[in-house]
C-alpha cells in the first residue's frame, strides 16, 4: 500500500501497523464486510418471496399444495440451519448438474462412478473453462438459495400468521363489493398484512444478520473466516509475524454485528411507526390519539 511497506521487518510501531492493516488479506477482510451486506441485501427479498410462496401455498384450497406449504415450513423449521447448510448446498449443486447432464450430454455414462459424481464437461456448473469470478458468483448464488430456503420457511410462518390476522371483516367487505378472490388478495390482504407481519419480519431480519457467520460453511469467505484466518498466530515465515490475535479480530466483528443490529432496530422502528398509521390496531389507535389530542 505505502511505499515504505516493502520491507516490513525493519518497521515498528505505527508504521508497521499501517502496513499490516493494509495488506492484501486485510483488504479482503474489509471487502468481506461488503460481501456480507450484499448477501443480506440479496437474500432478504428472495427469502421474502419464498416465504410469500410458502404462506400462499399453506392457505391454498388445493390440498396437495397446502400440504406442500405446511410440510416445507414445518420441516425446515425443525432442522437447525447449520445442519441444513452442511449437506443441502452440495445436494443442490449435484442435483442441478444431474439435470444438465440429462439434458446436455449425449453419453450414457452414469453420473455416479463408484464414489465419484461425474458429469460431462458441458454439464458442469459452472463450466471449468469459465473464469474465477463465475465460480465465485455461482458459490454466492448457492449460498443465497440455501439461506433463502431456510429463512423463507421462517418468513412463510410469519406471513401466514399475518394473513390470518388481517380482520375477516375487511376481506368480507371486499367480497361484498364484488371483488374476485384474486383481487381480494392483491388489493386488501397483501397491503393490510404488513403491519401484522412487520414485528415478525424484523425479528427474522435480526436472525438473518446473526446467521451470516454460517456463510463460511457454504464456502463464502465471510468476516468470521477472515477474522480467524488473520487473527491466527503468524510465525516468522510470514512478512508480518504476530502472536494469536484472534481475540481482537473477533471483538471487531462483535462491534460490527452490534452496530448492524442497532441501526436495524432504529430503521425498523421507523418503518413500524409508518405502517401502523391508520391501522385498526392498538398501536395505530395510540398513534391517532397522540396526534389529535
Amino acid at each position: 500500500m505505502f511505499s515504505y511497506c516493502s520491507d516490513p521487518s525493519v518497521l515498528d510501531g505505527f508504521a508497521w501497523l499501517s502496513c499490516y492493516l493494509t495488506t492484501g488479506t486485510h483488504m479482503l477482510f474489509y471487502a468481506s464486510f461488503g460481501v456480507v451486506l450484499l448477501l443480506l441485501a440479496i437474500t432478504a427479498p428472495i427469502a421474502l418471496l419464498f416465504g410469500y410462496g410458502g404462506a400462499m401455498a399453506s392457505r391454498s384450497r388445493i390440498a396437495p399444495i397446502r400440504w406442500f406449504g405446511r410440510i416445507y415450513t414445518a420441516m425446515v423449521r425443525g432442522v437447525p440451519d447449520i445442519i441444513f447448510f452442511l449437506f443441502v448446498p452440495i445436494a443442490l449443486d449435484q442435483g442441478l448438474e444431474w439435470l444438465r447432464h440429462k439434458a446436455l450430454c449425449d453419453s450414457d455414462a452414469p453420473v455416479r462412478q463408484g464414489n465419484d459424481f461425474v458429469v460431462c464437461a458441458a454439464a458442469k456448473l459452472p463450466l471449468s473453462t469459465s473464469p474465477e469470478w463465475v465460480h465465485d458468483i455461482y458459490a454466492m448464488t448457492l449460498a443465497v438459495i440455501a439461506f433463502s430456503v431456510v429463512f423463507g420457511a421462517f418468513a412463510a410462518n410469519v406471513l401466514y400468521g399475518a394473513m390470518q390476522a388481517v380482520p375477516r371483516a375487511q376481506l368480507e367487505t371486499a367480497e361484498a363489493y364484488g371483488m374476485t378472490p384474486r383481487q381480494v388478495t392483491r388489493r386488501i390482504l397483501v397491503p393490510q398484512m404488513w403491519t401484522y407481519a412487520l414485528p415478525g419480519l424484523s425479528n427474522l431480519w435480526m436472525i438473518l444478520i446473526k446467521a451470516t457467520p454460517l456463510l463460511f460453511l457454504l464456502g463464502i469467505e465471510d468476516i468470521v473466516y477472515w477474522a480467524r484466518e488473520l487473527g491466527g498466530a503468524k510465525t516468522s515465515s510470514f512478512a508480518y509475524p504476530h502472536p494469536d490475535w484472534r481475540l481482537y479480530y473477533f471483538l471487531v466483528v462483535l462491534v460490527f454485528y452490534l452496530l448492524m443490529t442497532w441501526v436495524s432496530e432504529r430503521v425498523l422502528g421507523r418503518v413500524t411507526a409508518r405502517l401502523t398509521q391508520g391501522q385498526a390496531t392498538l398501536a395505530g389507535e395510540a398513534q391517532r390519539k397522540a396526534v389529535a389530542p
Partner: peptide
C-alpha cells in the same frame, strides 16, 4: 439484552471460551 441479542451466538461462544 442488547449485547446478547445483538451478536451471533457463534462469537459469544468464542469470546466466552477465551
Amino acid at each position: 439484552i442488547f449485547l446478547f441479542r445483538g451478536s451471533p451466538l457463534f462469537i459469544q461462544f468464542f469470546l466466552a471460551y477465551e
